[in-house]
Write a protein that binds this DNA or RNA. Structure first.
Lengths: 189, 189
DNA sequence: TTGATTATCTAATATTATTAGATTATTATC
DNA sequence: GATAATAATCTAATAATATTAGATAATCAA
């Protein structure tokens, strides 16, 4: 009784993604994943270098997903509209895929080329989205970091219950983005 | 051979904090903590309700530490100076105590009264720091969230290697705070 | 000094990650 | 189509962890 499960790295990563989104990235285990795939845990070692290797693969896949989504979000948009679209895409990705979102944050131990590439891709998407502001190269990179910081900080606090008070969170997000856009317009510098 | 170790909750939490800062909150275990305290793991169950209970206590202690530091940071300061001092205190706490900083983010499972109190205290410190801007109650609370989001997002990306490019991170932080201060001054609204 | 309390221990169970090596299913070769 | 090679999966075993139960020894109160 050994009918093959027909696994491959992609199917395993997909199942891991589902588990991470459902139960959290931290509780993702080889045991739980194998069980979901109808297979014994050691089987997974045939495809990945342990739990760490699996999580690295998940991080890369998640980052690629996110990158593709961000790319679609800014197609045909420029300036404020593009920045807002990026921000809302990031936030909705985090809401829809909390496990994958956490995985994106977690850099693989050994800086994997695929990870580097996906990360660079997202930065480039963001830089292109900012092109309408006609920033210098460095200013654009700072602006990308600012956007990422703002959205990540907000989303992270939001998802982990950091905002206790009964005050509209969407409004806070709007204001954060308004502050960023104002800065990009140079109202202040 | 059972000379008592003379433990109490405080000593255990302190040792846990040291371990978390040294090796990361995620790798904090009952086994490692007991070993550092020169005691067998089951001993710790006399003081805390398992690893989760211990981590909750650590979260609360860390939040109280942070809150005290923030309180000191804004004494005798107002307006922009107070906001900048808050932001830099938050960031330096995260740098000096990465494990505790992570612990602060993690809300205890059961919303512990001590946790609620410490959280409320930090919000109040921040609201007071913003008093010079003469904001409405709601605007002040949004501003607190904005400050927390900005600093947390930046620090989190910074600590977890999210900023790959060789571009001055201090400068990015400065710009983020400049954007916040400009917003608070209402240059834009 | 004795008895009660309590801090700590040992022993045992369950779960997990991981490695080694056996077995069975598929594929390639003749 | 039979057989050999390959590859996917399994069983078995080891080590580490969290946790519970209950025993023991140190301290404290009377």
């Amino acid at each position: 009784m050994n009918a093959r499960a027909g696994l491959d790295r992609k199917k395993i990563v997909q199942a891991a993604a589902a588990l991470a989104d459902e139960d959290g990235l931290n509780t993702l285990s080889m045991a739980a994943l194998a069980s979901r795939l109808g297979v014994r845990a050691p089987t997974l070692y045939h495809y990945f270098d342990g739990l760490n290797g699996l999580k690295s693969a998940l991080s890369i896949a998640a980052l690629e997903d996110l990158s593709a989504r961000l790319g679609r979000a800014v197609m045909g948009k420029a300036g404020d509209e593009a920045v807002l679209s990026l921000a809302h895409s990031l936030r909705s990705f985090a809401h829809e895929h909390p496990g994958l979102y956490d995985a994106v944050q977690r850099a693989p131990d050994d800086a994997d080329p695929a990870w580097q590439a996906a990360g660079q891709e997202t930065v480039e998407i963001m830089v292109r989205a900012l092109s309408a502001y006609e920033l210098t190269q460095d200013d654009a990179l700072h602006a990308v970091r600012m956007l990422r910081s703002i959205v990540h900080g907000f989303v992270s606090l939001e998802l982990h219950g950091g905002f206790g008070l009964p005050l509209d969170v969407d409004e806070t997000f709007r204001r954060l983005l308004a502050a960023l856009l104002a800065y990009l317009h140079g109202t202040d510098r």
